[in-house]
């Protein structure tokens, strides 16, 4: 019997596909998310919109809060560690979380190195803005990817940009002559072996979800139609005026992303989505997506 193999790490992400992973800050919110049909929850102290508003250093959530959320639900529980903070990751693994998000939403602990994720039994998900960043994270051991988007804005434009970048770069690789892949790997700043695999298979080596700015059922379906495997919703649910109903609607829109009639149906009767922020109104030093290397 072999425990925590790469197959089982990637495998859990495969089981989450077509599903919605929701940020929650209390056990009660976790239960609302589970009742709405979330495939997993992300246990946090503050959703990205509040981190953005309040500023300061954002760290791993308190151990007690994470344990209370694990206790509250039967679905998988994820939690965030700071980029490069491998001891926060050790703590999260010891607490028994099912997945760690090495996240740019928290304040980075290392401005050069990400966590060596091969060294852990618990699997990791990491953010990416393009194919090169995605493959660098996989080479460090990430078993799941997500677009970075721009968390806490309720504005889907950055998630769209990142998903389009990843998938169009994959299509470009597929059309290259094998001799050209060495240069492509250099340009992508990614290991050649991973670049070659992507060129041959036409897909990322691990599951890729959308994250960062998804606030409506239509946003979720848009990302699914662009080719992602599933959806993270951060502030979009519990910063709206109707969390339970919106959570259900986003779950259904993620399943039926190709059925406009159903999308119209689930969009009916929703009240206000979270307030959105125009990306150009955010000072460059406050953008979260540029964290990570």
């Amino acid at each position: 019997m072999e425990r925590a193999t790469f197959t089982t790490k990637v495998g859990l992400a495969q089981m989450l596909k077509g599903g919605v992973i929701m940020d929650v800050v209390t056990p009660e919110q976790a239960r609302i998310a589970e009742e709405a049909g979330a495939a997993a929850v992300m246990a946090l102290e503050r959703v990205p919109a509040d981190i953005r508003a309040q500023g300061g250093v954002a760290r791993m959530s308190s151990a007690d809060l994470i344990l209370a959320i694990i206790e509250a639900v039967t679905i998988p529980v994820m939690a965030k560690a700071r980029i490069g903070h491998f001891v926060e990751a050790q703590v999260l693994e010891a607490l028994g979380v099912d997945y760690i998000d090495e996240s740019e939403v928290l304040t980075p602990a290392d401005e050069e190195h990400h966590i060596n994720k091969h060294a852990f039994r618990v699997p990791f998900v990491c953010g990416c803005r393009d194919l090169g960043e995605a493959l660098r994270r996989v080479s460090e051991g990430a078993a799941m990817l997500r677009t970075k988007g721009e968390a806490g804005t309720g504005n889907v434009v950055e998630a769209v940009r990142h998903a389009r970048a990843v998938y169009s770069q994959i299509r470009t690789l597929q059309n290259m002559h094998p001799d050209e892949l060495f240069l492509a790997a250099k340009q992508l700043q990614s290991p050649y072996e991973l670049v070659r695999t992507v060129a041959e298979t036409g897909r990322l080596p691990v599951v890729n979800f959308a994250a960062g700015g998804i606030a409506t059922p239509a946003d979720a379906a848009l990302m699914m139609q662009l080719g992602v495997d599933g959806i993270f919703v951060g502030s979009g649910i519990f910063k709206s005026s109707d969390p339970a109903q919106r959570a259900r609607a986003i779950v259904e829109a993620t399943t039926h992303y190709n059925e406009p009639e159903i999308l119209a149906q689930v969009s009916r009767g929703l009240s206000d989505a979270m307030p959105g922020i125009e990306i150009s109104a955010i000072p460059a030093e406050n953008l979260l997506a540029t964290r990570g290397w």
């Binding site: 019997m1 925590a4 193999t5 089982t8 790490k9 039967t74 099912d98």
Partner: peptide, 14 residues
């Protein structure tokens, strides 16, 4: 029985 072998870190191949 759901999750009979434990949490994700207890997932395995056998």
């Amino acid at each position: 029985r759901r999750n009979t072998f434990g949490r994700q870190i207890d997932s395995f191949e056998a």
